[in-house]
Design a protein around this nucleic acid. Structure first.
Length: 669
DNA sequence: TCGGGTACTTAGCAATGAGCAG
DNA sequence: CTGCTCATTGCTAAGTACCCGA
């Protein structure tokens, strides 16, 4: 296995190290490279095989790959560990050997699936979506009151009323926009009589309904084990039936096979559409996507799908149009699936290609700060922000349709303040705006003089609500980036900067001497540096203060325990000195061990406390899942002998199976 | 170039459930 | 066994990116 790993490591190096040079210098040789790539990658028992160009995607089953792995095992002719600069010719020759070798084996053993036309699959079969359970009318004793008088609502109006009743405890049911939107949409569901009667939301009393639902959820909690077990089994049955699909010979987990149930829309932040009715999705709204030769999913008895299509250029199984924004929703595969994993891998490979040319790009945009053309200066300053601060691209949004949030290209004059001098620093820019999900971005950063002067220029003669970059949008920016590097877009900078930061922080923070919990703290700190860079915030947990106190109490208790143990050790030592017999020596040893153990426990608790405190308002999950090349983490674990489970939970390990398999301890992002 | 449409990734929060102390 | 706490999972909104036709 070790041998094998060395070899694989070696191959990775090649793929990473030499392929790109090739791309730049010998475009016409790329065909060859692709073939090599296949051979190079046909090795894994993981489930992923990616090529940077989608037309070259192909895939074979884990089992088959395993076999092949063994075939290559005894071939250990080359395994130089640190090959930074191996001569190209030799590398190429070796690769070709592998190609012919590998290719034959592959051809003999499997039928390859290889897509050269942008298609995503050959075969797709699934059971369609699971619809939300139908509305169950309230029992008659649960009353709704209007203007103090009980009133029986039509089932349609009642259902929408229950949506509101269920949210009664939330603050947003008190917000004007929410109430207005809700009432307007509710009235659409009412009968003529109801509409005539119910004219004022303030006079509506939902409390009995609300109490009823609370009681229901209590009852659910109080269910016996058997009842709970039964429900669990039923869910498992549904999962097995609807939660998987067959895509190209593989049974893959579906991410969201349940259709979103109806309810009241609650956007994030100050959303103009909050409170609107999200309508129930019917089979007639559903477009099914599957392969022609598959067993098509059946609509519920007596119903029809909107459409069944066979589009293998896309990855979704089911789609429908949602009524709040009119956008399309999809049912797609789980992150553990081949199709998502490959894409993920590809994303990080693109970021690694950026690593190789980021210096050039940085020099370029610094030059562009001096351009005669306004649009180029704006582009260059925006790119600087995206690179330095990891800002999002900032697409335009339709006004009034969504909360007012911005990204880099859509920044307005009102979102930044310029300080020629601030707290002893020169040329400070203060950012204050709402970004994705209406999360506030606040940052004060010193910038280069040229940037500062440019910003002053961009802001000249503008109103606060004018665009800062009036000659720029994401499409212009991305078009430019595309010219700088194949596949480069604004978001690649976030991925790149996040991953490179993790790698660099891990190098800096990991201390050889420290034990595993301390190393994990270092990992979390590195992770945290990235989360801060990407502004991944969370609301401090409601029970934060309390749980912190609990932990502190535990620490105090442990401290007491430690001093007790130390005292006991001391007296045992004294005792042993006097008595000098085996038994008392043994006691000393035991006590020593006890002290050590307690010290370790104490340290662990203290580490935990530090970690938690530092994490109060920071969410680590998002960067871990979406921005950090998992191979960096896997390599770090391997290097320091840390079980990967300490870093990734089960779901995460499934998602990153490709990386866990592929990366060895000296993987370099 | 612009608006509209589509596909896919990224995001935080609420519900759930596993594990643990009492 | 019970109740509590915290991590995990599910949910779905909100982004990015890119295509197309006028």
């Amino acid at each position: 296995d070790k041998k094998h790993r060395d070899k694989e490591r070696e191959k990775m190096k090649h793929k990473d190290g030499s392929t790109d040079k090739y791309k730049d210098k010998h475009k016409e040789k790329r065909k060859e490279e692709k073939v090599n790539y296949h051979a190079d990658n046909s090795w894994k028992n993981a489930c992923m095989h990616v090529k940077s160009e989608p037309e070259d995607d192909f895939y074979h089953s884990p089992k088959q790959s395993l076999k092949r792995e063994r075939d290559e095992d005894n071939d250990s002719e080359f395994k130089p560990k640190k090959i930074k600069t191996e001569n190209d010719k030799k590398a190429k020759k070796r690769k070709q050997d592998e190609v012919s070798n590998g290719h034959n084996i592959m051809k003999a053993k499997w039928e390859e699936e290889r897509y050269t036309d942008g298609s995503k699959w050959r075969f797709l079969e699934h059971k369609g979506p699971v619809f939300a359970p139908p509305y169950e009318p309230l029992p008659n004793h649960v009353k709704f009151y209007y203007d103090g008088k009980a009133m029986k609502l039509s089932p349609e109006a009642e259902e929408v009323a229950t949506f509101f009743a269920k949210m009664l405890d939330h603050e947003y049911t008190t917000k004007d926009i929410f109430r207005k939107n809700f009432f307007k949409d509710w009235r659409k569901e009412m009968t003529t009589e109801e509409k005539a009667k119910l004219t004022d939301l303030k006079k509506c009393n939902f409390t009995e309904m609300s109490e009823y639902f609370k009681a229901q959820s209590e009852a659910r909690k109080a269910m016996t084990k058997e009842e709970k077990q039964k429900i669990k089994e039923e869910n498992e049955r549904i999962l097995q039936e609807y939660g998987f699909c067959i895509m190209d010979n593989h049974r893959e987990r579906i991410a969201n096979f349940r259709i979103e149930p109806p309810g009241l829309f609650r956007g994030r932040g100050d959303h103009p559409k909050m409170g609107m009715l999200k309508r129930r999705i019917r089979p007639e709204d559903i477009i099914v996507n599957c392969s022609k030769d598959s067993k098509h999913p059946e609509p519920p008895p007596g119903r029809k799908w909107k459409e069944v299509r066979h589009d293998n250029k896309v990855t979704w199984l089911v789609s429908w149009t949602e009524n709040i924004q009119g956008s399309i929703k999809y049912i797609m595969l789980n992150p553990s699936s081949r199709i998502k994993g490959e894409k993920d891998w590809q994303k990080y490979e693109t970021a690694r290609r950026l690593k190789k040319c980021v210096d050039r790009i940085r020099n370029q945009y610094r030059e562009d700060w001096k351009s005669k053309e306004m649009r180029i200066r704006q582009r260059a300053v925006a790119l600087y922000f995206i690179d330095k601060l990891a800002l999002r691209a900032g697409n335009e949004k339709e006004e009034g349709e969504t909360a007012d949030t911005v990204g880099c290209c859509s920044l307005r004059v009102e979102h930044i303040k310029l300080y020629p001098e601030n707290d002893g620093q020169e040329y400070v820019v203060e950012f204050d705006f709402l970004g994705k999900d209406s999360i506030r971005y606040y940052n004060k950063v010193p910038v280069e003089k040229r940037v500062f002067k440019n910003l002053q220029l961009f802001m000249e003669n503008k109103e606060p609500d004018d665009d800062l970059f009036d000659r720029l949008n994401t499409s212009i920016l991305n078009k430019h980036l595309q010219e700088l590097m194949d596949g480069l877009t604004a978001k690649v900078f976030r991925t790149y900067n996040a991953s490179i930061t993790l790698q660099q922080q891990l190098k800096e923070l990991t201390n050889v001497e420290e034990n595993i919990p301390a190393k994990i703290l270092s990992y979390n700190r590195a992770n945290r540096a990235v989360a801060i860079l990407c502004n991944h915030q969370r609301a401090p947990p409601k029970t934060f203060e309390k749980s912190m106190q609990n932990l502190q109490a535990k620490i105090d208790a442990k401290r007491d325990q430690l001093s007790d143990a130390k005292r006991e050790l001391k007296s045992a030592k004294a005792d042993a000195k006097v008595r000098k017999d085996e038994k008392s020596k043994k006691t000393v040893e035991t006590k020593k061990k006890a002290v050590q153990r307690i010290e370790e426990q104490l340290m662990k608790l203290e580490v935990q406390a530090t970690d938690r405190e530092e994490n109060k308002q920071i969410a680590l999950g998002t960067s871990k899942l979406n921005y950090l090349d998992p191979r960096i983490s896997v390599a770090w674990c391997k290097k320091w002998g840390i079980p990967v489970e300490k870093i990734y939970n089960k779901t995460q390990r499934e998602k990153f199976a490709w990386a866990i398999d592929m990366a060895d301890e000296d993987f370099e992002f």
